[in-house]
Nucleic acid binder design. Structure first.
Lengths: 141, 141
DNA sequence: AGATTATTGTTTGATATCCAACTAATTCTG
DNA sequence: CAGAATTAGTTGGATATCAAACAATAATCT
């Protein structure tokens, strides 16, 4: 494949990964969640509590996008918001008990995805491609 | 970088490429066009005439998305539509004279992008990463 | 302390995107 | 050949996304 098609290839892989995740979420009957919501939950599984600002940075989305995404997670009962005592501007988000129940499902979906992506690609190749992708990432930043 | 972060890395690179293209398009005073419009034009530079169906497949977008994208290009005067004589369902699109003028600009933007992406990555590495990305692409399809 | 500046999050408006339902035209089939 | 099935494109509805404008609070400076 021509090296000129790198952008198209990256774009297609991203799109396929997205579809994979949406399909998997459906399969586990978690309908209506997008990968971005999954990313938020992912961070909450390890962090317990984060401000909107930090989460926006973590999931690399605009703060206004995060407002909408979190709003949906709250309405679905997976996440709750609370204002910070010492800084009334800040809002933290955390998992509800219902949200915590999602962790094993997400872990499994994540494992499935990684196994699918790296199928037939040995560890040395994986490391090599990650190294170059990181370089590309900084190049185009 | 951990191989588990492949999805996030792919996603970020795509996003950065998109931003790069939007920035470049602005720089050349082609405001209001998204990379998807650029992809359509790109195919019209080499193909002269394509049906909506074929173009949707080429740019990997839903046909309804293509309707909207082409609609915008038409309204901006870069593209024109015409129904096919022997199949009244089909519509072909082609560049207007105004649209043809964009070719050198797009060629330059495309060259800039490729040069940016591959900076400091030698040809063997480029080939290797493309090979593995292609494998990933089929894995996750 | 009071005024200015910076930060945090929400709201609003615009757009790309997909899916499902639809229309119109063509092709297939019995 | 007439009815059924397929195909090409559009329309409508939903959503993720960003940027800009805004409100509220905190920090800084004079």
């Amino acid at each position: 494949m021509d090296t000129k098609e790198i952008a198209a290839q990256i774009s297609e892989i991203r799109s396929n990964i997205n579809n994979f995740l949406i399909r998997e979420l459906k399969r586990y009957t978690i309908e209506g969640l997008a990968p971005s919501h999954g990313a938020i939950l992912h961070y909450l599984f390890t962090n317990k509590k984060m401000t909107m600002k930090d989460m926006a940075k973590a999931v690399r989305r605009d703060k206004s996008t995060l407002t909408a995404l979190v709003c949906k997670l709250v309405s679905m009962g997976y996440v709750q918001k609370e204002t910070v005592a010492d800084d009334q501007r800040s809002v933290t988000i955390r998992l509800t008990p219902e949200g915590k129940k999602l962790e094993p499902v997400f872990r499994e979906i994540s494992d499935n995805l990684l196994q699918t992506i790296w199928r037939g690609i040995d560890e040395a190749e994986q490391k090599e491609v990650m190294r170059i992708l990181q370089k590309i990432g900084t190049n185009v930043r």
